[in-house]
Design a protein around this nucleic acid. Structure first.
Length: 596
RNA sequence: GCCCCCGUAGCUUAAUGGAUAAAGCAGGACUCUUCUAAGGUCUUGAUGGGGGUUCGAUUCCCUCCGGGGGUACCA
């Protein structure tokens, strides 16, 4: 099983165009006596796609990185010449050295068309087996029970969902984990507030809003009457010790909250394999703390239990309060232990805002200290979503824009554009298109950037429907889908059957060839995104693919082409480009309607 | 105070140590009798300051300035 996955990974690697060029280069470099293996030239062999057309289709900097007599440029010239000779006849159109020492490669049109025909037949194009079927846990969304699902959660949810898809495309068995905030003193406050002012019907009708109001009211009242805080602590203590009434209330709050969150998840097209929150680990915390103390890893300080992390150059961590209560980090340790045992994951991604950087540095340090180092742990951080004023959004003051509100607004805006510009859509299709476009725009806005800096919330940016946006990608797809719909039946069938032989032999224009070459980059983008835990790599790639697609569309007739073979070749290109756009968007969780 | 993150065009962003720093928005000029003009073409415009490492620095190191976050009983 494992072996076959590895074989698959190798299979993908050597069919990738960049890998083919690397193979040629390795042979040339070995022949020239430059090195025996990769280590000799100071890092992995790099072959990349230059930004400018004049630097070729592919390029390498290897001549500047290997030692040897002469200038880097002289080495580059020798390598360029040798690579041209070493490649199969007609593989390159030309190879060229360029100052200060790049070697640039131009594929011949025949090579591009041949590779295209191969890619068109590939069933799982873009996916690879590098994860070898190992488990990877992606923790994301992690909403708090009884609190609003606001824009920060939206960002987190969309990001985590896309990363999970990307890891899956890289051959991991992904466990999508919603680590619910379902425990802690806030439940004491909520229970106290509910007992005093709560109304079952109101909560049932609109749970989050009602619970939120109780929470806000509690804080307002507690400011005047400090006695309330004590009552809240007492209610939580009762909850922890299994008080029936409080337990029931807690379960009910959780149930109602989750039901409402699930509406949002459905609208977003996001789901989870595990809904295990903080409460799940509650019983393990005391023994865990005691165990750490017994092993001398934790120690008493100012009445609390701490773990010193001096050797990691980190401040100590509190794992048990002086009153014996646990903290979030204690729960995270228990959670990590549980995950390692149960799933034996190769990777765990914590999608959490960057304000928790220190906490994760500490968690990872403790994991190392405890020998819980079988998985690669990564804190995938991202910037905070700030209010339009540029300040942190205060939930307590009710400033938060909820995800549902943002989605409604986005869909309504998209509906307006669909009504105005959509062609030949039924009412049903218009609804579907507006949802896909509106929510797609919202998602893409959160996925295309790789910033760690905080983001000032901006409706205009979130709802952008032009330029570098989801609707641009979707529009490109819909244009191609329209061509495929209108194609003669026989032609369409040949395309769907993967009969792309015509493409391999029919000479094409540069916009066609450029689009084919852009399609070849898809697997590289997926692999890089997986390694770097970055959705923006995929988003940026898709945008460039769409640009190449639209250039092709604007310059090259497909259905209007008189020559039959040429028309068939172009239809095949349209079909594969559309498929790649759709698959790439799917990785980001963005739908590709046939008509918008 | 200490630690972490971030400073790129008017605005929002891109760029595994690579070539003349790439886009979108906004502004200006073109472009639908032809497969969806939500498009395409052209155009104005930028790496906070100073050192260093390197053949080569937006990227790595030091320092200063500016912004954000964290810094034991919240998460």
């Amino acid at each position: 099983m494992k072996g076959s996955v590895h074989a698959a990974a190798r299979g993908y690697a050597c069919t990738n165009m960049r890998e083919k060029i690397k193979e040629i280069l390795r042979a040339v470099l070995k022949e020239g006596g430059y090195f025996e293996d990769g280590a000799a030239y100071g890092g992995p062999l790099e072959v990349f796609v230059p930004e400018k057309a004049e630097f070729g289709h592919y390029s390498t900097n290897v001549a500047m990185r290997i030692p040897g007599g002469g200038t880097p440029l002289a080495r580059a010239e020798a390598i360029a010449k040798a690579a041209g000779a070493a490649a199969p006849a007609g593989f390159f159109e030309k190879t060229e050295a360029a100052a200060p020492g790049f070697v640039n490669f131009w594929l011949s049109p025949e090579t591009v068309r041949g590779e295209f025909a191969r890619v068109a037949r590939e069933k799982r194009f873009g996916r690879n087996g590098s994860g070898a079927g190992a488990a990877a846990i992606v923790e994301y969304s992690s909403v708090n029970i009884a609190k609003p699902f606001h824009l920060g959660h939206l960002r987190n949810t969309v990001l985590g969902a896309a990363l999970a898809n990307i890891l899956e495309a890289n051959g991991y068995r992904v466990i999508r984990w919603n680590y619910l905030g379902d425990w802690g003193t806030q439940f004491g406050k909520l229970i106290a507030a509910y007992k005093q002012w709560g109304d079952r019907r109101i909560v049932r009708k609109n749970p989050i809003e009602a619970l939120q109001k109780l929470y806000v009211r509690f804080h307002a009242a507690a400011a005047e009457d400090p006695e309330l805080e004590a009552r809240a602590r007492d209610e939580f203590r009762k909850l922890e010790s299994g008080d029936r009434e409080n337990r029931k209330l807690w379960e009910w709050f959780k149930e109602e909250s989750l039901a409402e969150f699930k509406k949002t998840y459905r609208a977003l097209g996001v789901d989870f394999d595990a809904w295990i929150g903080e409460s799940f680990f509650e019983k393990e915390l005391r023994p865990l703390a005691a165990d750490l103390a017994a092993r001398g890893i934790a120690e008493r300080s100012e009445g609390a239990l701490i773990v010193r992390l001096d050797e990691f150059n980190l401040p100590p961590v509190l794992i048990e309060k002086s009153d014996g209560a646990s903290l979030y980090l204690t729960r995270d340790i228990a959670n990590l232990r549980y995950r390692l045992r149960k799933y034996k994951p190769a990777e765990i991604l914590y999608v959490v805002g960057n304000e928790q950087s220190l906490a994760f540095a500490q968690l990872f340090a403790i994991a190392k200290k405890l020998g819980m180092d079988s998985a690669r742990l990564a804190h995938v951080k991202y910037g905070l979503v700030l209010g339009e004023s540029g300040k942190k959004i205060s939930t307590r003051r009710g400033e938060a824009v909820t995800a549902a509100e943002a989605m409604d607004k986005a869909v309504a805006l998209a509906r307006g554009v669909v009504d105005e510009k959509g062609r030949g859509l039924t009412e049903r299709q218009k609804d579907a298109a507006a949802r896909a476009v509106g929510i797609g725009a919202l998602k893409y806005a959160n996925l295309k950037e790789n910033r760690l800096t905080d983001i000032v919330f901006d409706w205009g940016k979130m709802l952008d429907l032009t330029g570098d946006s989801a609707p641009y990608l979707q529009y490109t797809y819909a244009r191609f889908a329209s061509i495929l719909r209108k194609a003669p039946k026989g032609a369409a069938r040949r395309v769907s059957a993967g009969a792309t032989a015509a493409t391999a032999v029919v000479p094409g224009s540069e916009p066609e060839l450029a689009l084919m070459r852009k399609i070849f980059e898809f697997p590289d983008a997926v692999a890089a995104a997986g390694e770097m835990h970055s959705t923006s790599v995929v988003a940026n790639y898709l945008y460039k693919l769409a640009v190449a697609s639209n250039r092709f569309y604007e310059t090259t007739p497909v259905l209007g082409e008189e020559d039959r073979a040429r028309r068939a070749a172009r239809l095949a290109l349209v079909a594969v480009a559309a498929r790649t756009l759709r698959d790439g968007q799917a990785l980001l969780g963005i739908e590709s309607p046939e008509k918008i």
